[in-house]
Structures are given as structure tokens and as C-alpha cells.
Design a protein around this nucleic acid. Sequence first.
DNA 1: TCGTTCCGAAACTGTTGCGTTCCGTAAAGA
DNA 2: TCTTTACGGAACGCAACAGTTTCGGAACGA
Lengths: 216, 216
Amino acid sequence: MTPGVHTTGEGATLARGPGRPRDARAGVAILEAAARVLAAVGPQGFTVDAVAASAGVGKATIYRRWPTRATLLLEAASRLGLELTDPDTGSLRDDLVEHLVALGTKLRTTPSGPMLAGIISEAAVNDEMRPHLRRWVTERRAVAQATVERGVARGELPAGTDVGRLLDLLGGMVFFRFLTNGPAVERPEVEWLVDTVLAGARSAASVPADGSPDPA
Amino acid sequence: MTPGVHTTGEGATLARGPGRPRDARAGVAILEAAARVLAAVGPQGFTVDAVAASAGVGKATIYRRWPTRATLLLEAASRLGLELTDPDTGSLRDDLVEHLVALGTKLRTTPSGPMLAGIISEAAVNDEMRPHLRRWVTERRAVAQATVERGVARGELPAGTDVGRLLDLLGGMVFFRFLTNGPAVERPEVEWLVDTVLAGARSAASVPADGSPDPA
DNA sequence: TCGTTCCGAAACTGTTGCGTTCCGTAAAGA
DNA sequence: TCTTTACGGAACGCAACAGTTTCGGAACGA
């Protein structure tokens, strides 16, 4: 079909065929504009025209790089921050507090918050979106998972602790408050949250649940 | 403007002016169809044409009762079930288990689940939708709130317990799992959840958080 | 210089959906 | 019977949006 094809979103000047090479700055501007639009109006209101206008770019320049609206939307969404860093203070309790404070803050101050809300509703109706949502959640959880497992290894939690459940319990409250527009979970409340759940996890371990291991 | 006006969604035969009275069955059929459509495609895909077709009704008949798509959508959404009943077994632990099992089941088996997901994403972008979402959540929480307060009165939890926080913690995990398409929270896991949180709430009470009282 | 591919901008096509209007018909009161 | 308002159904105007094409012009290799 197209001669010097390079369908990666990356607009680097890699043209092999003849003719004018692609302008790398156009590709960057498009992705930045896509992130702006996505954060402003969410996935449902995300339009290619708006991205083109915001980037100062013709629509053809977008469609030369991304074949459909959906591909551009997904790439912009996957780049939207909420990167969690492992605090590793040596104390499981303090690590979790830092994690959850950062989670709450980033949900409310970065585009990832509205974006997540949009993806969730899209996934509720659109089967195609569900794996993307699941993957996004799982990737963010992996960092915190390592944190908790380290705590278990240090003996701060019983050996048989179900880490996945614990993370859903801790993060669930922060996500729930954010998604339902409740009051922000500030640091003092996070400390209560972590202390309560850790205390419960330690004491409840003596009465093991007979439930399924939950392969999350 | 219109002569025998009765702009309530209710299609009861209350016409005072001359002419043929409104058919009550049409109004009922429209609301039922609206609920079906809403559950099937969510608020974003909710179209008046689809409701009219599903109800076997002309669009004019809909617009005679609801002035805009939004009013019909909100009325249909507000009627979508997820009514929680207070078990009142005499044990706080057992009451909470029943509450949360019912919550998880209804989210996954009634239209209220997809509907909630759609409302959440709409609220993330649309300021007008936020109060409706907040109200919906608060109303559902009221029943569980009474349950926990009864438990506090019985001495099953310390007197100073922040009931709102506790509910967000308990419900948060169930909502989170549902909204992110994680594995269902079945009864054994609910029992672990309740036992863990109650144990934590009892022991953490000795170390009161210095945080804000959180007026939820 | 020539051919090719890029650029931003704009026009265009086709679809979808809101809200309105008109049709022929039905059900009420006067 | 006559007037008024309802009904289902269909058409219409209008706007928004995805994706394509066309335009004049610019940047590369041959």
C-alpha cells in the first residue's frame, strides 16, 4: 500500500522511501494534544478534530500516524502518568501510607483520574475495553504488590497473607472515594486506613478464611 | 403554552383540558424501555430513538412527557434498583456480611451495575451529574450506616468509631473489584473482609488518628 | 529539475442522534 | 357532529464526528 510505511506512533524521522520525511515534532505535538483533550473531556468526548486543533495539525497528519481514533486514544491513555514509585522506607506501614497518599493525590491532580473513570464506564459496556482496563489496574498494582510482599518477608505480616486481597482493600477505599466524588482521602485518613487494615490482617490471620485463593 | 399540561413523567390519565387523555400505559412502557436500554448500552449509548423503538412508541409521545433526553435518562437511572435491605440479625458481623454479599450480587446481576459505571464517568467530566452520583451513593449507604451504628450502640465497636470511614473501607473493595472487572467478591471473601476490618477497627481504636473528622 | 512524500488547512462524505413537525387515526368533552 | 388532544410512524432540519480527499506548498533523494 503506502510506500515508506512506518506506522508506529513515533514520528521519528525514519523515512526510507523518497520524499519529505515525517516531522517528528508533529507526532509529539499530537500526543501531547491528545493527552490534553483526553484529560479535559474524557474518552467519550475525545474527538480527532479537537486533537488536531489543539496540536495545530491537520487531521491527515494524524491519520498518517494512527489508523483510527481508537488507536490514538489508547496510546494517549496508556501514557497518562500515575506512575507509582516504591518508597521502600524499611517499614511496611510507612511504605503503604506513602503509596496511598500518592495514589489519591495523583488521581485528583493528573489527567489519569478522569481518564480512569472514562475507561471504567467504557469497559462496562464495551467488551474490547475490558482487557485494557484490567491491564492498567494490574500494572499499577504490581509496584504496591512488591512492597507488601517485602513486608511479609520481613515478618510484618503473617506468611500466608493474601496480598492481592489486601491491596484491593487498601486501594479500594481510595478509588471509591475518588470515583464517587467523595471527600479526598488525606494523609491522616490514609494513616488510619493503613493502621486499621494492617491490624486486622494480623489478628484475622489466626482465623483463616476457608474461601478460594482468588487468582487476581 | 400547552393547554392541558401535566409534565410529570407519570402518564396517568389526569387530563383536565379537552381532547384525548394520555395513555398511562405509554408512559410506563417508555420508562421500562428506558431502563432496558440504559442497562444494555449505558448512559453514553442511551438514545431516544432506541427507547422509542423498544417501547413501541413514537418519539413524539416521549417528548410530550420528558422535555429532553437528559430528563428521561435521569428518571430511568434513579429508578434502577439496588435497594439494600437491613438484615438485622443481631450481629454486626453477620449484618455486614449479608449487606456486602447483596451489594456484590446486585452490582453484577442487575442493571444498576453498568448504570453506576456510566454515571461515574459522566460525573468525571460533567459537573451537572456529580450531585446525582453523590446522592445515589449516599442514599444506598444510609441503610448500611444504620446497621453499623446499631452495632456501635451494642458495644460491638468502640464508641468513637467513624462509621462513614468504615463503610467506605468495606464497600470500597466491593465496588473497586466490580468497577475494574476484577474477580467477584464471593461470600468467603466477604467474610474475610468483614472480619479483617472489624478486627482492625477494634484494635486501632486504642491509637486514635489525629486526622480530620471527615464530614462525608 | 523531477518525482515522491510530507505539511496544514479545508472541503467533502456518510453516519448518528436530538428535537420538531406532519400524517392519518383514535378518544375524549361540548 | 365538532373541536381538541392524544396516538404510532415517518420524515425532516440541524449539528457533531469519523475518516477521506484535495489543495498549495515544502523537504527530501535521484
